Amino acid sequence: MNQPLAYIHPQAKIARNVVIEPFSTIHKNVEIDEGTWIGPNVTIFEGARIGKNVKIYPGASISSVPQDLKYAGEDTETFIGDNTVIREYVTISRGTNDKWKTVVGSNCLLMAYVHIAHDCIVGNNCILANAVQMAGHVNVEDYAIIGGSSALHQFVKVGAHVMISGGSLVRKDVPPYTKAAREPLTYCGINSIGLRRRGFSPEKIGEIQEIYRYLFMKGLNNSKALDLIEVELPPSKERDEIINFIRNSDRGVMKGYSY
């Protein structure tokens, strides 16, 4: 849609049925796929690759220069997946020479004032509630839900199907399928409601609960718990995903359950 009150760089690649509202700015080296709506007063900087049917609300800033003193102007990108909703005043920085990109997957909801820093990878079907602040190099896997005003330390990993309480300080990795709350961040059970909504059977949910009993409720250190899980619990996709997540954690995982 040709909007005379918006600035669109002549080298930007915009699909024909994209709607760009007044007073938005689209820089060069930007690609926007069909069906996407760009609200008023949105700024989309170089390197943005925006998918189909995305909705970007007023005041958002997409693919801005990273807030990283090591960034030296290298050509990097920001990818936004199909059907993602980006609400008011969300800010997303493009990558640095670490990953060369920042990624937000498909079918995500980023509520107002979310910040996603350089080199973050956010999976599909994630919800980041209002004012979630994500430092650089954070990895959030599919179907994660992060409560409002939470702050995520750089290089933290959040597993798939996780739910994190609002106002959390996320300094450690959060393993898949869990709920996390309290200060310091602590295991508070598995995300059983979310798993049921996504079609996990009662048997599978019980299996995941048993894995986390070994990890967080038997007084074992992580290495011993993982060894026992491999010996005593049957192999499954979920079991191996949890084991690999914890063994590959660079920052260590959150605290176990305590009264």
Rank of each mutant, 00 (worst) to 15 (best):
Ile121Tyr: 12
Gly136Lys: 06
Gln154Gly: 06
Asp142Tyr: 03
Ser149His: 14
Leu152Thr: 09
Ile145Glu: 13
Gln154Leu: 09
Ile145Asn: 14
Tyr143Thr: 02
Asn125Gly: 01
Ile146Glu: 00
Glu141Asn: 10
Met111Asn: 07
Ala144Val: 07
Ser150Arg: 03
Met163Arg: 06
Gly136His: 05
Leu128Pro: 01
Ala144Pro: 00
Gly123Lys: 08
Ile121Glu: 15
Met134Asp: 01
Ala112His: 05
Val114Cys: 14
Val170Cys: 10
Ala129Cys: 14
Met163Gln: 13
Asn130Arg: 08
Ala131Asp: 11
Val122Glu: 07
Ser168Glu: 13
His137Ala: 10
Gln133Ile: 12
Gln133Tyr: 04
Met134His: 02
Ala131Pro: 01
His137Arg: 11
Ala131Ile: 04
Cys126Thr: 10
Asn139Trp: 00
Val132Tyr: 02
Gly159Cys: 10
Lys157Val: 01
Ala129His: 06
Asn139Ser: 13
Gly147Tyr: 02
Gly159Pro: 01
Gly167Tyr: 08
Leu128Ser: 03
Gly123Arg: 04
Ala131Trp: 00
Ala151Lys: 14
Asp142Asn: 15
Val156Asn: 05
His161Lys: 09
Cys126Asn: 06
Ala131Gln: 11
Gly159Glu: 11
Gly123Glu: 05
Met111Ala: 09
Ser150Ile: 05
Lys157Arg: 15
Ala117Tyr: 02
Ala112Pro: 00
Ser168Trp: 03
Leu169Pro: 00
Ser150Trp: 02
Val140Phe: 04
Asp142Trp: 05
Val122Phe: 07
Ala160Glu: 15
Gly159Trp: 05
Ile116Trp: 04
His161Asn: 15
Met163Asp: 06
His161Tyr: 15
His115Trp: 06
Met134Val: 15
Ile116Asp: 08
Asp119Arg: 06
Val114Tyr: 02
Ala151Ser: 15
Ala135His: 10
Met134Ser: 09
Ile146Phe: 03
Val140Cys: 03
Leu109Cys: 05
Asn130Trp: 05
Gly147Lys: 11
Val158Ser: 02
Asp142His: 09
Gly136Leu: 11
Leu152Arg: 01
Val162Ile: 08
Gly147Pro: 06
Ala160Asp: 03
Gly136Asn: 13
Leu152Lys: 01
Ile146Lys: 03
His161Arg: 10
Ile121Pro: 00
Ala112Met: 11
Ala151Thr: 14
Ala135Gln: 12
Cys126Val: 15
Ser149Cys: 13
Gly159Asn: 08
Asn124Tyr: 03
Leu169Phe: 09
